[in-house]
Structures are given as C-alpha cells and as structure tokens.
Amino acid sequence: MEITTEKDSNYNDLEKMSVREILENINKEDKTVPLAVEKAIPQLEELARIVAERMKTGGRLFYIGAGTSGRLGILDASECPPTFGVPFDWVLGIIAGGDTAIRKAVEFAEDDPTQAWKDLQTYEVDSNDVVVGLAASGTTPYVIGGLEMANANGITTGCIVCNTGSPVAAVAQFPVEVVVGPEFVSGSTRMKSGTAQKLALNMLSTTVMIRLGRVKGNKMVDMQLTNHKLYNRGVRIIMTETGADEQTATALLEKYGNVRQAVESFLISS
C-alpha cells in the first residue's frame, strides 16, 4: 500500500520560512482537509447508519486508537454526554496505553495486537455494539488486532483512516478513508490527518445523536446544564420553543432541570 501520510512534505526548508510563511502554508494545506472529508461522505453515511441502528437497540459505540487518533476518539466520546445528555457508557473511547497515554506517550503500546481486545472486554463488549478503529496510517497493530477480534466475535466494526488500501480498512466492515496527502511536517499526522479524523468524528457522532432523537429542531435540548453559559442557553431555548418569557422559562428549567422536559411540559399545559 502507498502510505501517503508518511510521504515527504510538499514544502522544504521549513526552518528558513518566516513565521508568516509557516502559518500561511499550514493554512493552505489545512484547506484541503474538508474536501478530502467530503469525498468520504458515502462511507461515513454507511457507518453512521449502522451505528444509529445498533444504538437504537441498546448498543454502544466504541472508539479504539493510539496516539493522536486515540485521543481524538476519547475527546469525541467525552463530549457526547454533556452535548446530547446521553449516559457516559453510550460512546466510549479507548486508547492504547490506557489513560496515561492521553497526556503522555506510552512506548510501543500501539504495537501490541492483542491489547485492544483485552481493553474492550473490560466493558463486556458484545454483538449489539460497534467498534470503530481510528488510525491515521491505517497500519496500527493495536487497532488491527482489536477489529479482527471484534469481527471474530460477531461485533460490527468500522474505521477512520487517512490512507487507501490500509490493513485497518481491510479488516473493518465499514471503512472510512479520508486521504489528506503528505503532512506539512513530514509524517506529523496530528496535523491534517488529525483534523480530518476530528471532522469525521464530529460528523459521525452528531449524525448518530440526531438520528437517536437527541436534537430538536437545531437545539441541544438534552444537554447537561453544567455551567452558567449552558444554563442560560437552556433558558433561551425554552423561550424560543415555547414563547414563554424569561421568568417563566427560568422557573421551568429550575423545576425540571432539563430543557426537553421543560418545553414538553409547557406545551402540554398550554
């Protein structure tokens, strides 16, 4: 396979560039990422459909990855509960090397092809769930091994990679390939590849949550009210959805502690 993520940068002598030149050239490369994601929408559609289908029947979504990819999976998973009000065990991110690897690289953790399945088993993963492997290169043994074992145990698998024809995509039942080409700093997949995976994860989880009914209109009616900004947003949503004044909306939110319930109770009683 051709590993474009490991190819030399289209730019050379980076250290001789001015600060402005570095920034402009990074930005020039970053502009290509959404176009690469757009080409992968048909693949993302298939993955989003199966994830929503599984989750509607009680399944969970697992992300497995190493390094930047693993951290992005954890980020996406951790943001689903506050944004959409879902339980913390609906979307789960697992990184090679465990929680320590979130902040500090764990040497050779990604090279163990057996560890991902061990990590998944601690959550009693089963055939209702979906396991999505995240690997910019598409060659990470940790991810390949995890997907292979998931397949062997009747679990639906997907992936998000940044090369074509990779081992990870070959193993995944629902592969998503977002090919962004060489990085600005050769091989630094935290850059364009990481951005591509972040965009794809945003699209996947948001689409799934909308399909699960966790958005009304265009509002996060199930969001967790964990700070003043979100509380005030909740009040505004209630006012918009019901036509109630601020005092009434605030009282409703105080009573129910949830935007959706506050709106529904007002509309029922009106």
Rank of each mutant, 00 (worst) to 15 (best):
residue 79 E to S: 11
residue 265 S to E: 15
residue 90 W to D: 12
residue 139 T to R: 15
residue 251 A to V: 02
residue 79 E to D: 11
residue 208 V to P: 01
residue 172 A to R: 09
residue 231 Y to D: 01
residue 158 G to R: 03
residue 232 N to R: 08
residue 101 A to M: 06
residue 196 A to G: 09
residue 48 A to P: 02
residue 102 I to A: 07
residue 53 E to W: 13
residue 81 P to D: 09
residue 241 E to H: 00
residue 53 E to V: 13
residue 158 G to N: 04
residue 209 M to N: 04
residue 211 R to Y: 12
residue 3 I to A: 09
residue 123 Y to F: 15
residue 226 T to L: 12
residue 211 R to F: 05
residue 142 Y to C: 09
residue 19 V to L: 15
residue 222 D to G: 06
residue 186 S to G: 09
residue 66 A to G: 11
residue 88 F to D: 14
residue 59 G to A: 07
residue 240 T to S: 08
residue 199 L to R: 11
residue 231 Y to N: 04
residue 241 E to L: 01
residue 233 R to T: 01
residue 199 L to K: 11
residue 158 G to S: 05
residue 114 T to D: 11
residue 207 T to F: 03
residue 51 V to L: 14
residue 243 G to W: 00
residue 140 T to G: 01
residue 229 K to G: 10
residue 110 E to L: 12
residue 253 L to N: 02
residue 167 P to T: 06
residue 103 R to Y: 14
residue 189 T to P: 01
residue 66 A to H: 14
residue 227 N to K: 04
residue 270 S to I: 05
residue 43 Q to P: 02
residue 267 L to R: 15
residue 73 G to R: 06
residue 191 M to L: 15
residue 246 E to Y: 07
residue 148 E to A: 14
residue 29 E to I: 03
residue 207 T to M: 02
residue 213 G to P: 09
residue 27 N to M: 12
residue 199 L to A: 08
residue 35 L to D: 13
residue 164 T to S: 15
residue 59 G to P: 02
residue 124 E to V: 10
residue 160 I to W: 02
residue 24 E to L: 15
residue 33 V to N: 08
residue 200 A to L: 04
residue 24 E to F: 13
residue 24 E to W: 06
residue 233 R to C: 00
residue 1 M to R: 13
residue 20 R to Q: 14
residue 106 V to G: 01
residue 211 R to I: 03
residue 204 L to T: 04
residue 239 M to S: 07
residue 172 A to W: 11
residue 259 V to Q: 08
residue 184 F to A: 11
residue 194 G to A: 05
residue 128 N to S: 04
residue 155 I to R: 12
residue 214 R to Y: 10
residue 187 G to Q: 03
residue 233 R to D: 04
residue 83 T to N: 09
residue 30 D to E: 13
residue 192 K to V: 01
residue 32 T to P: 12
residue 184 F to N: 08
residue 43 Q to F: 07
residue 74 I to F: 05
residue 239 M to A: 05
residue 164 T to H: 12
residue 167 P to R: 10
residue 103 R to A: 14
residue 135 A to V: 03
residue 269 S to E: 14
residue 138 G to P: 05
residue 228 H to M: 15
residue 153 N to I: 09
residue 99 D to S: 15
residue 76 D to V: 11
residue 243 G to R: 00
residue 140 T to S: 08
residue 137 S to G: 08
residue 245 D to W: 00
residue 190 R to T: 05
residue 204 L to E: 01
residue 233 R to A: 06
residue 123 Y to K: 11
residue 121 Q to P: 14
residue 176 V to Y: 09
residue 41 I to A: 11
residue 106 V to P: 04
residue 106 V to C: 03
residue 226 T to H: 12
residue 147 L to Y: 07
residue 51 V to A: 14
residue 91 V to S: 03
residue 24 E to S: 11
residue 7 K to W: 15
residue 20 R to F: 08
residue 59 G to M: 06
residue 134 L to T: 03
residue 228 H to P: 07
residue 123 Y to N: 09
residue 228 H to S: 10
residue 123 Y to R: 10
residue 47 L to F: 04
residue 236 R to T: 05
